[in-house]
Amino acid sequence: MVLPPSLEVEVTRPVLVFLFGLVALSASTLAAERDSRHLVVVNGIGGEAFYRDLFHRWAVSFMELAEKHLNINPDQVFYLAEDPTRTPQRTTSQSRKEEIERILRLVAESSKPEDLIMLLLIGHGTARDNRILFNLPGPDMSASELSEWLDAFEGRRVIVINASSASGPFVPTVARPGRVVITATSSAAENQQPRFGGHFVTAFAAPVADRDKDGRVSLLEAFVYATGEVERDYERENRLRTEHALLDDDGDGIGTRTPGGEETDGRVAARIFMTPSDVNVSTNANVLALTVAARALVDRIELLKRRKQELSVLEYETKLESLLLQLALNRQAYRKGLP
């Protein structure tokens, strides 16, 4: 597995990442982070009125969320709608194939290396003549066409979320090192309209999606949240599940249904945060010191967890508690120190 240099550092040296994150917590850095993110939302053809409305609602919700919570410059949000007259103030242009290509080339030109580009595809997908397509007004877009256009983003971090039916085969075609590809389904045979998109859109504003309680929802956490909600939907309705989302972020083109943990997929997505850190921007030296100390304690906990099997339960719990109590006191002091 080969990762682009910028991502590899994050995966293998978490301590440095945290420190890097801390240093980045200045107003100007936050602004820079906002400017380094680009969002392209594409609504495919809806067909029935129900789906036209649903897809539009998901798209608008996500854009509103992006503006409020995801620290993205509104000027860098592009919306390609099936019907541009519905929300003309938000819409960049109609979601025709040539327009998608044009906008992606525009973003590629205006973005810088290390920028993060998120492409969200909402709509229906189909498999036809051995081609996997995302259905658009006019000619449909194939997975290979999209992949080719994304080649213009060399050196940037690209996230593609295809929330359409039959989207699974986008993974092997679109996946590359440096890209995170998420699809709502695992194969072309899963051609019922998936629910994944709706839950993925809301994940970034759902507190429960923040599994590690660090105040931010990572891309991986959003994926886990959305797939969990999908599973519940089907269970609640006692229906056979017809969608299994995939995530690929190691670039091997083999998506994983349950990324994270021991899987190589999920390691990059776990460190991509669309929301800014809840750690307040502060120039207070004490606060900064406490934050550094907290990060160090978290790293020690991580190291202890890796040794869990070597220790007795009592020993492990005693050491873990000791570190956690130090962290608890640190966080108390931190909260007191905030303006």
Binding site: D212, K213, A294, V298, I301, L327, A328, Q332
Partner: peptide, 12 residues
């Protein structure tokens, strides 16, 4: 979730 403030406080 080591940075879970409510849980840390309860542990204390």
């Amino acid at each position: 979730a080591p940075m879970y403030d409510d849980a840390l406080q309860l542990l204390l």
